[in-house]
């Protein structure tokens, strides 16, 4: 006991030595990553399609193609969102069609009429070329799963819509509302369904669920007093409309007017 105590220091040194020895020379040889190579490989036609996967996809593709490429209507002109400073023919078309459909459904469900339709310029994703209109056309102009929603806004928010558009200087699709501005883009008059804005009443604005949640910073929708989800995808709305008409209407009426 006494001996052990005497040799304590030496004993610990010995143990320390053994530990270090074991650690340094007998430690397991592990695998270490000593080199990394990284690159990107473009997937081009130089890689022949894998036939098993190609054959598997084929029936899905055929089904979609048959469905999407059947002719629903005729477009007499090319509808293009890049042609027009304050309104475009495609923006007018989409706003008018959405307004018309929304008003019908809203009246059936809520016994109320829609006053305005506002969509966003950025949400128009393609042109409608002159020629046959198919369901694929609807997928191209509206690839997103956005659905129709009706927002109840006070008169004050209608003025905010006008100010938003004046500030954005974009041809956002608009129906049911007219904004008159001076040449410096300040809002002079706003009418809804031909009438001046009544600050004390509630207006019903048809839009997409994306915008209603503050998308594109349309923050006035956040002040809505009520909202009515129509549970109707905008794309399906357009497809249903294309099925109903033979020829798409071309409406170039001005919704935003600059008075000199």
């Amino acid at each position: 006991m006494i001996n052990l105590k005497k040799n304590n220091a030496a004993y610990y040194m010995f143990v320390l030595f053994l530990t270090l020895f074991a650690f340094i020379s007998c430690g397991p040889k592990k695998f270490y990553s000593n080199r990394v190579d990284g690159k990107k490989i473009p997937v081009t036609e130089q890689y022949a399609p894998d036939s098993q996967i190609e054959n598997f996809i084929a029936p899905y593709r055929e089904h979609i193609d048959n469905d999407l490429d059947s002719v629903l209507a005729w477009s007499p002109v090319t509808f293009d969102k890049s042609k027009g400073k304050w309104q475009t023919n495609i923006g007018n078309l989409m706003a008018d069609v959405t307004f018309e459909k929304a008003d019908k459904i809203f009246y059936i469900r809520e016994k109320k009429h829609v006053d305005i339709c506002l969509l966003n310029h950025g949400g128009i994703r393609a042109t409608i070329p002159q020629g046959f209109v198919t369901a694929r056309t609807a997928y191209e102009i509206m690839p997103f799963e956005n659905s129709l929603i009706i927002m109840a806004l006070k008169g004050q928010q209608i003025w905010e819509i006008a100010a938003y558009i004046a500030n954005e200087r974009k041809p956002h699709p608009l129906a049911g509302m007219q904004i008159v501005m001076d040449k410096d883009n300040s809002v002079k008059r706003v009418t809804v369904q031909g009438q001046p804005v009544d600050n004390s009443r509630i207006y019903y604005v048809a839009t997409s669920d994306y915008l209603s949640n503050g998308g594109d910073h349309m923050d006035f929708f956040k002040k809505a007093t009520a909202s009515y989800d129509m549970d109707y995808k905008l794309r399906n709305l357009y497809i249903d409309y294309f099925k109903e008409v033979d020829t798409l209407p071309v409406n170039t009426s001005e919704r935003i007017i600059i008075e000199q």
């Binding site: 592990k30 080199r35 473009p42």
Partner: peptide, 27 residues
């Protein structure tokens, strides 16, 4: 959209960790 595929290759060596760190070749 599946336009590219990324490829990263890690090479391992048996032994104790190299103090040089590892070589990275990208591009």
């Amino acid at each position: 959209y599946g336009i590219n595929l990324g490829q990263i290759d890690f090479y391992f060596e048996k032994g104790r960790k190299s103090f040089k760190g590892r070589t990275i070749n990208v591009g």
